[in-house]
């Protein structure tokens, strides 16, 4: 079957990319390595955006909020409590999940553009709080000099860019793997069903609000963990890392990648971030403009993303289901007989 071939090819590509990512720090310079590590963190946030936008059907511009919560929690814990990576990760994921849980009542009953607006507002609010709450966050200066992380008790601290990059890679790959597994459980199945038709899901006895809350909190935990990866990669964070441009870029990346696909989200987010970083170099000051144009072009040309565009093409080749309304009404006339 061709489906099997495609699946194999996709697996092979994923494996190749993974190998490339593992050897990358020995091929590129330290600066690029650090940049790659940061991109990994953002790609992981992209996965959480995809989980909400594509899988659960809640488009979001606010995943920078749990991302920031995780990053600051990790930075504070890393500076004052523990340099053990696992501890920092758990704390960061917990902080992201907690913030997401607090937001749940605001978003769980809203849909579509309303969710976008609410989450956008929350993301901006978090940036303001980060700038004002100086005693904890260092204000607009941010938090610098977070000690190098040691992945696990008894292991040495990661002093090199390569080491920190590999740590980021292991964490991101593990979490992405966990998300892929999660999507194959009943939870993933029900989420996809809810995106297709919430009314039907309710009529089958599913508590849709509970599912959506769970998805929102899980996505918050993932974004929080990504925040911890960012701290490890940069050893420095400031509110500028969590601004609106980041949310917009992530949503753009996820849309480009095809919202419902985790792999697509990874590729899309990484691509968009890479383009931004590259543009910063060649077109100083104009990067937002170019990205804005890219955003408009993407939304215009690919309203459902690359993946959907492809499946739409294959759908066009397949026989179309007949329109329901005509047939349904056809039997109505028999009443009078």
């Amino acid at each position: 079957m061709s489906g099997e071939v495609i699946r194999r090819a996709r697996g092979a590509v994923a494996a190749l990319v993974l190998v490339g990512l593992v050897v990358a720090p020995w091929v590129v310079d330290d600066y690029t390595t650090a940049l790659l590590a940061r991109t990994l963190a953002l790609a992981l946030v992209g996965v959480s955006v995809a989980l909400l936008t594509g899988v659960a059907g809640m488009p979001t511009l606010g995943q920078t909020a749990p991302y920031a919560a995780g990053a600051y929690a990790c930075a504070v814990v890393g500076s004052r409590v523990s340099d053990v990576g696992v501890v920092q990760l758990v704390v960061a994921a917990g902080a992201g999940a907690l913030l997401a849980a607090l937001i749940v009542p605001l978003v769980v009953h809203a849909r579509g553009v309303i969710v976008l607006m609410i989450t956008l507002a929350i993301g901006e609010l978090v940036v303001v709080v980060l700038g004002r709450w100086r005693s904890v966050t260092g204000g607009t200066d941010g938090l610098a000099g977070v000690p190098a992380v040691r992945p696990f008790w008894g292991l040495p601290a990661l002093a090199s860019d390569q080491g920190r990059y590999l740590y980021a890679l292991v964490v991101v790959a593990t979490l992405v793997g966990a998300v892929l597994v999660l999507l194959r459980t009943r939870a993933g199945l029900v989420l996809r069903a809810g995106r297709d038709d919430e009314t039907r899901l309710r009529a089958s006895g599913h508590r849709v609000a509970v599912h959506l809350s769970g998805a929102h909190i899980a996505a918050g935990a993932i974004a929080g963990a990504a925040g911890s990866v960012l701290v490890v990669a940069q050893q420095y964070i400031s509110p500028a890392d969590f601004g609106f441009d980041t949310s917009a870029l992530l949503l753009l990346g996820v849309v480009i990648g095809g919202t419902a696909s985790v792999g697509g989200a990874l590729v899309g987010a990484a691509l968009v971030i890479a383009v931004r970083d590259w543009l910063f170099g060649v077109l100083p000051g104009h990067a937002p403009l170019v990205l804005g144009a890219l955003f408009v072009a993407t939304v215009y040309l690919l309203p459902t993303g690359v993946n959907r565009a492809r499946s739409r093409l294959s759908e066009a080749a397949a026989p179309q289901p007949d329109p329901p309304a005509a047939q349904e009404r056809a039997t109505v006339g028999e009443v009078g007989r």
């Binding site: 069903a193 297709d196 599913h206």
Partner: peptide, 16 residues
Amino acid sequence: RPAVFATLTAAENVVV
């Protein structure tokens, strides 16, 4: 109007 989960397979629809 028949309501089903469009992106899920028929079998998955029944499972859900």
